[in-house]
Amino acid sequence: MTLKLIIGNKAYSSWSMRGWLACKQSGLHFEELTVPLYNDGWDERKREEDIAPSSGKVPILWDGEAVIWDSLAILEYLADKVGRERFWPKDEVARGMARSMAAEMHSGFLPLRRACPMNLRKVYEGVTISDETRNDALRILGLWAEARARFGNEGPYLFGTYSAADIMYAPIVTRFVTYGFTLPGFAEAYVDAVLAHPWMEEWYQAAQNEEWVIEKFEIEPSK
Protein backbone atom coordinates (compact mmCIF):
# COMPACT_ATOMS: atom_id res chain seq x y z
CA MET A 1 0.00 0.00 0.00
CA THR A 2 1.32 3.46 -0.93
CA LEU A 3 2.12 5.82 1.89
CA LYS A 4 0.18 9.09 1.91
CA LEU A 5 1.71 12.26 3.36
CA ILE A 6 -0.48 15.27 4.08
CA ILE A 7 1.48 18.52 4.22
CA GLY A 8 0.86 22.26 4.37
CA ASN A 9 2.05 25.05 2.12
CA LYS A 10 5.65 24.43 1.07
CA ALA A 11 6.57 28.09 1.27
CA TYR A 12 5.67 28.33 4.95
CA SER A 13 5.28 24.95 6.67
CA SER A 14 8.56 24.02 8.31
CA TRP A 15 7.24 20.89 10.00
CA SER A 16 5.79 19.71 6.69
CA MET A 17 9.25 20.09 5.16
CA ARG A 18 10.68 17.81 7.84
CA GLY A 19 8.02 15.15 7.31
CA TRP A 20 8.47 15.29 3.56
CA LEU A 21 12.26 15.05 3.77
CA ALA A 22 11.88 12.06 6.10
CA CYS A 23 9.71 10.33 3.50
CA LYS A 24 12.30 11.05 0.81
CA GLN A 25 15.07 9.73 3.06
CA SER A 26 13.13 6.51 3.62
CA GLY A 27 13.34 5.66 -0.07
CA LEU A 28 9.71 4.53 -0.03
CA HIS A 29 7.18 5.66 -2.59
CA PHE A 30 4.61 8.04 -1.13
CA GLU A 31 1.65 10.04 -2.33
CA GLU A 32 1.79 13.72 -1.43
CA LEU A 33 -1.29 15.80 -0.62
CA THR A 34 -0.91 19.52 0.01
CA VAL A 35 -3.56 21.21 2.16
CA PRO A 36 -3.43 25.03 1.96
CA LEU A 37 -3.26 26.33 5.52
CA TYR A 38 -5.36 29.07 7.11
CA ASN A 39 -7.51 29.94 4.10
CA ASP A 40 -11.31 30.13 4.09
CA GLY A 41 -11.81 26.37 4.06
CA TRP A 42 -9.20 25.52 6.71
CA ASP A 43 -11.55 25.07 9.67
CA GLU A 44 -13.75 22.77 7.64
CA ARG A 45 -10.81 20.68 6.41
CA LYS A 46 -9.54 20.24 9.96
CA ARG A 47 -12.75 18.38 10.71
CA GLU A 48 -12.30 16.02 7.80
CA GLU A 49 -11.28 12.46 8.50
CA ASP A 50 -7.78 12.70 7.04
CA ILE A 51 -6.79 15.64 9.23
CA ALA A 52 -8.62 14.83 12.45
CA PRO A 53 -5.97 12.62 14.13
CA SER A 54 -3.60 15.53 14.68
CA SER A 55 -6.23 18.10 15.65
CA GLY A 56 -5.75 19.91 12.38
CA LYS A 57 -1.97 19.93 12.31
CA VAL A 58 0.32 18.81 9.50
CA PRO A 59 2.21 16.78 8.46
CA ILE A 60 0.34 13.50 8.77
CA LEU A 61 1.54 10.17 7.40
CA TRP A 62 -0.94 7.41 6.53
CA ASP A 63 0.38 3.88 6.13
CA GLY A 64 -2.58 1.54 5.84
CA GLU A 65 -4.22 1.54 9.26
CA ALA A 66 -1.31 3.44 10.83
CA VAL A 67 -1.73 7.21 11.21
CA ILE A 68 1.34 9.13 12.33
CA TRP A 69 1.42 12.86 13.03
CA ASP A 70 4.26 15.07 14.25
CA SER A 71 7.39 15.28 12.12
CA LEU A 72 9.73 13.56 14.55
CA ALA A 73 7.25 10.71 15.04
CA ILE A 74 7.02 10.32 11.25
CA LEU A 75 10.80 10.24 10.99
CA GLU A 76 11.10 7.59 13.69
CA TYR A 77 8.25 5.51 12.24
CA LEU A 78 9.96 5.45 8.86
CA ALA A 79 13.32 4.66 10.44
CA ASP A 80 11.75 1.63 12.12
CA LYS A 81 10.19 0.63 8.80
CA VAL A 82 13.27 0.81 6.56
CA GLY A 83 16.19 0.52 8.99
CA ARG A 84 17.46 3.07 11.46
CA GLU A 85 20.89 3.26 9.84
CA ARG A 86 19.28 5.08 6.91
CA PHE A 87 18.39 7.95 9.25
CA TRP A 88 20.92 7.97 12.07
CA PRO A 89 24.73 7.79 12.24
CA LYS A 90 26.15 4.30 12.70
CA ASP A 91 28.60 5.37 15.41
CA GLU A 92 26.76 5.27 18.74
CA VAL A 93 28.43 8.43 20.06
CA ALA A 94 27.51 10.35 16.93
CA ARG A 95 24.05 8.80 17.00
CA GLY A 96 23.52 9.95 20.57
CA MET A 97 24.44 13.51 19.67
CA ALA A 98 22.32 13.47 16.51
CA ARG A 99 19.28 12.31 18.49
CA SER A 100 19.86 14.95 21.15
CA MET A 101 20.13 17.67 18.50
CA ALA A 102 16.95 16.48 16.80
CA ALA A 103 15.08 16.43 20.12
CA GLU A 104 16.30 19.92 21.04
CA MET A 105 15.18 21.24 17.67
CA HIS A 106 11.81 19.56 18.09
CA SER A 107 11.10 21.13 21.48
CA GLY A 108 13.21 24.26 21.56
CA PHE A 109 14.30 27.50 19.88
CA LEU A 110 10.82 29.03 20.19
CA PRO A 111 12.00 32.68 20.08
CA LEU A 112 13.74 32.11 16.75
CA ARG A 113 10.85 30.11 15.32
CA ARG A 114 8.31 32.74 16.33
CA ALA A 115 10.34 35.78 15.29
CA CYS A 116 11.47 34.27 12.00
CA PRO A 117 8.62 32.23 10.48
CA MET A 118 9.62 30.20 7.45
CA ASN A 119 9.01 31.90 4.11
CA LEU A 120 10.92 30.45 1.18
CA ARG A 121 9.87 33.23 -1.18
CA LYS A 122 11.45 36.08 0.79
CA VAL A 123 14.94 37.35 1.61
CA TYR A 124 15.12 40.30 4.00
CA GLU A 125 18.02 42.61 4.75
CA GLY A 126 18.83 44.57 7.87
CA VAL A 127 16.39 42.70 10.12
CA THR A 128 16.50 43.58 13.83
CA ILE A 129 17.24 40.39 15.78
CA SER A 130 16.25 40.24 19.45
CA ASP A 131 18.64 38.95 22.08
CA GLU A 132 16.48 35.86 22.60
CA THR A 133 16.50 35.06 18.91
CA ARG A 134 20.23 35.70 18.66
CA ASN A 135 20.86 33.36 21.59
CA ASP A 136 18.89 30.63 19.83
CA ALA A 137 20.94 31.15 16.67
CA LEU A 138 24.20 31.01 18.61
CA ARG A 139 23.13 27.78 20.31
CA ILE A 140 22.28 26.23 16.93
CA LEU A 141 25.59 27.35 15.43
CA GLY A 142 27.40 25.85 18.41
CA LEU A 143 25.66 22.51 17.88
CA TRP A 144 26.45 22.59 14.18
CA ALA A 145 30.11 23.41 14.88
CA GLU A 146 30.49 20.54 17.33
CA ALA A 147 28.80 18.01 15.06
CA ARG A 148 30.85 19.07 12.04
CA ALA A 149 34.13 19.11 13.99
CA ARG A 150 33.61 15.75 15.67
CA PHE A 151 31.71 13.73 13.09
CA GLY A 152 31.59 15.60 9.77
CA ASN A 153 34.74 14.37 8.08
CA GLU A 154 33.00 12.07 5.61
CA GLY A 155 30.76 14.62 3.93
CA PRO A 156 29.28 18.15 4.01
CA TYR A 157 26.42 17.47 6.42
CA LEU A 158 26.28 17.65 10.21
CA PHE A 159 27.40 14.05 10.69
CA GLY A 160 29.11 13.67 7.32
CA THR A 161 26.38 11.89 5.39
CA TYR A 162 22.79 13.17 5.22
CA SER A 163 20.85 12.16 8.33
CA ALA A 164 17.84 12.85 10.50
CA ALA A 165 19.71 15.75 12.11
CA ASP A 166 19.93 17.52 8.75
CA ILE A 167 16.24 16.90 8.17
CA MET A 168 15.33 18.47 11.51
CA TYR A 169 17.54 21.54 10.97
CA ALA A 170 16.71 22.10 7.29
CA PRO A 171 14.03 24.75 8.03
CA ILE A 172 16.52 26.61 10.24
CA VAL A 173 18.85 26.75 7.26
CA THR A 174 16.09 28.48 5.30
CA ARG A 175 15.40 30.92 8.13
CA PHE A 176 19.04 31.94 8.33
CA VAL A 177 18.87 32.77 4.63
CA THR A 178 15.47 34.50 4.67
CA TYR A 179 16.35 36.80 7.57
CA GLY A 180 19.94 37.54 6.55
CA PHE A 181 21.80 36.05 9.51
CA THR A 182 25.54 36.60 9.39
CA LEU A 183 27.13 33.16 9.64
CA PRO A 184 30.67 31.91 10.16
CA GLY A 185 32.36 30.20 7.24
CA PHE A 186 31.71 26.62 8.33
CA ALA A 187 27.99 27.39 8.75
CA GLU A 188 27.79 29.10 5.35
CA ALA A 189 29.32 25.98 3.79
CA TYR A 190 26.79 23.79 5.59
CA VAL A 191 23.89 26.01 4.53
CA ASP A 192 25.08 25.84 0.92
CA ALA A 193 25.30 22.04 1.10
CA VAL A 194 21.78 21.70 2.49
CA LEU A 195 20.26 24.08 -0.05
CA ALA A 196 22.05 22.28 -2.89
CA HIS A 197 20.59 18.91 -1.92
CA PRO A 198 18.25 17.75 -4.72
CA TRP A 199 15.34 17.27 -2.33
CA MET A 200 15.68 20.82 -1.02
CA GLU A 201 15.90 22.15 -4.56
CA GLU A 202 12.72 20.24 -5.42
CA TRP A 203 10.90 21.60 -2.36
CA TYR A 204 12.05 25.18 -3.03
CA GLN A 205 10.90 25.03 -6.63
CA ALA A 206 7.48 23.76 -5.60
CA ALA A 207 7.25 26.55 -3.01
CA GLN A 208 7.91 29.16 -5.69
CA ASN A 209 5.13 27.68 -7.83
CA GLU A 210 2.48 27.68 -5.12
CA GLU A 211 -0.44 30.02 -5.68
CA TRP A 212 -1.36 30.45 -2.01
CA VAL A 213 -0.29 33.41 0.12
CA ILE A 214 -0.66 33.55 3.90
CA GLU A 215 -0.62 37.24 4.78
CA LYS A 216 0.52 36.84 8.39
CA PHE A 217 3.74 35.24 7.16
CA GLU A 218 4.32 38.00 4.58
CA ILE A 219 4.69 40.90 7.03
CA GLU A 220 8.16 42.40 6.67
CA PRO A 221 10.10 42.21 9.96
CA SER A 222 11.26 45.35 11.72
CA LYS A 223 14.63 46.86 10.89
Results as ranks from 00 to 15, higher is better:
L5D: 02
I6Q: 08
I6V: 15
I7K: 03
S13H: 05
S14D: 04
S14N: 07
W15V: 05
R18L: 03
R18E: 07
A22T: 06
A22P: 03
S26N: 10
L28W: 03
E31R: 02
E31W: 06
T34S: 11
P36W: 07
Y38G: 01
Y38D: 04
N39Y: 02
W42N: 06
W42D: 10
R47N: 10
E48R: 14
E48F: 10
S54R: 05
V58Q: 03
I60P: 00
L61H: 01
L61D: 00
W62V: 12
W62H: 13
E65F: 00
E65W: 00
E65N: 04
A66G: 01
A66S: 04
A66M: 07
A66W: 03
W69L: 02
S71A: 11
L75C: 12
F87V: 01
D91C: 09
R95T: 07
M97T: 09
A102G: 09
A103W: 08
A103L: 14
E104F: 11
E104I: 15
S107I: 15
G108P: 04
L110D: 11
L112K: 02
L112N: 00
R114D: 14
A115V: 03
L120W: 05
R121K: 13
V123A: 14
Y124R: 09
E125D: 15
V127I: 11
V127K: 11
T128W: 04
I129C: 06
S130M: 02
E132A: 13
E132W: 00
R134Y: 11
N135R: 12
N135W: 01
D136W: 02
L138Q: 13
L138N: 09
L138T: 10
L138H: 13
R139P: 03
L141M: 15
G142V: 12
L143V: 07
W144F: 15
W144D: 01
A145W: 02
E146R: 13
R148G: 00
A149M: 11
F151Q: 04
N153T: 15
N153E: 14
F159M: 08
D166T: 09
I167T: 11
A170Y: 08
V173M: 06
R175M: 10
F176Y: 10
F176C: 07
T178I: 06
Y179A: 05
G180S: 04
F181K: 03
F181C: 00
L183Y: 03
L183P: 11
G185T: 06
E188K: 14
E188R: 14
E188W: 11
A189V: 08
D192L: 14
D192Q: 15
L195I: 11
W203F: 13
A206S: 06
Q208W: 08
Q208M: 15
Q208F: 08
N209T: 11
K216Y: 10
E218S: 09
E218D: 10
E220Q: 12
P221M: 02
S222F: 09
K223A: 15
